[in-house]
Simulated scan of single mutants.
Amino acid sequence: MDTAVTSTPKPVALITGASRGLGAAIARELAPTHDLLLGARSADSLRPILDELPGATGWPVELTDYRAVAAASASIARLDVLVHNAGIADLGTIAESSVDQWRNTLEANLIAVAELTRVLLPALRAADGHVVLINSGAGLRAHAGWASYAASKFGLRAFGDALRLEEQSLRVTSIHPGRIDTDMQREIRAHEGRDYRAEDFLTASTVAAAVRNAVDTPRDAHPTEIVLRPF
């Protein structure tokens, strides 16, 4: 007698800011074992990573457009992994800062994260899912010239702590990497007027591997915080 073989569906992972840099590296890490939804501001920006990972699905949405976020999330009934990687780094001293800089940084790095998580809570609960917050060393210690960015990342850490307590069926991991060799890092070094040496920084693939390790941690453990520094 023939026995029907049924395959178990892959877990689903949504990665924001997945078009390049760290987000694309995380997508590469999770692609063998997950069905991927790859987020970015535009469909055009996702084309290179979707060409590289043809099994993935693009999820283009502006994360600070909350009506668009709700509409794009409506069809997600189950979500095993949510990686919040998208963010901005608008640097400058407090004296040089503006209300718009503070508002834009907090909006992109904290408020949009909180709202996307809130909208996706039913899907995360259905899977006993895992929320991974890509934070920063600046979320543990502020530095001169980084006030608005650090404030957003300190807030992101607090958000993760609260989410972990409130949604006890979910795992919530805050990852705090030091500086990573990415296009954003090149822009930061240029802003600081300093030379760029890739070997001084973490690689995106190393940080992506830490995300993968957190996701793969057996269910009897809860990886709450991971701190990485360049060696």
Rank of each mutant, 00 (worst) to 15 (best):
A114R: 06
A114Q: 13
A114M: 08
E115D: 10
E115C: 09
E115I: 12
L116T: 15
L116Q: 14
L116R: 09
L116C: 15
T117C: 05
T117A: 07
R118Y: 09
R118K: 03
R118D: 02
R118N: 05
V119Q: 02
L120G: 00
L120T: 01
L121V: 08
L121Q: 01
L121D: 04
L121P: 06
L121N: 02
L121W: 02
L121E: 12
P122D: 01
P122T: 04
P122N: 07
P122R: 00
P122K: 14
P122Y: 02
A123C: 03
A123E: 11
A123K: 10
L124N: 02
L124F: 07
L124S: 01
A126N: 07
A127I: 03
A127D: 00
D128M: 05
D128G: 03
D128C: 05
G129A: 04
G129F: 02
G129M: 09
H130V: 08
H130Q: 14
V131G: 00
V131A: 09
V131F: 07
V132K: 14
V132Q: 15
V132R: 11
L133W: 06
L133Q: 10
L133V: 03
L133G: 07
I134V: 11
I134M: 15
I134Y: 10
I134R: 12
S136N: 05
G137Y: 01
G137C: 01
G137L: 03
A138W: 04
A138Q: 11
G139M: 01
L140C: 01
L140R: 13
L140P: 08
L140Q: 13
L140W: 00
R141V: 08
A142G: 14
A142C: 14
H143I: 08
H143A: 12
H143Q: 14
A144I: 05
A144K: 03
A144W: 03
W146F: 14
A147F: 00
A147N: 12
A147V: 07
A147L: 00
A147G: 09
A147Q: 10
S148Y: 02
A150P: 09
A150F: 08
A150M: 07
A151E: 06
S152L: 07
K153V: 10
K153Q: 11
F154C: 04
F154W: 13
G155W: 05
L156M: 11
L156F: 02
L156S: 08
L156R: 06
A158G: 15
A158H: 11
F159C: 01
G160D: 03
D161R: 10
D161N: 11
D161G: 02
A162V: 07
A162M: 08
L163M: 02
R164C: 11
R164H: 10
R164P: 01
L165Q: 09
L165V: 04
E167C: 08
E167S: 10
E167I: 14
Q168C: 10
Q168T: 13
Q168Y: 06
Q168K: 15
Q168D: 11
Q168S: 03
S169Y: 00
S169C: 08
L170P: 03
L170V: 07
R171H: 09
R171A: 09
V172S: 01
V172P: 00
V172A: 03
T173G: 14
T173I: 05
T173E: 13
T173R: 14
S174N: 15
S174G: 08
S174E: 12
S174A: 15
H176R: 09
H176V: 12
H176Q: 14
H176N: 14
G178E: 06
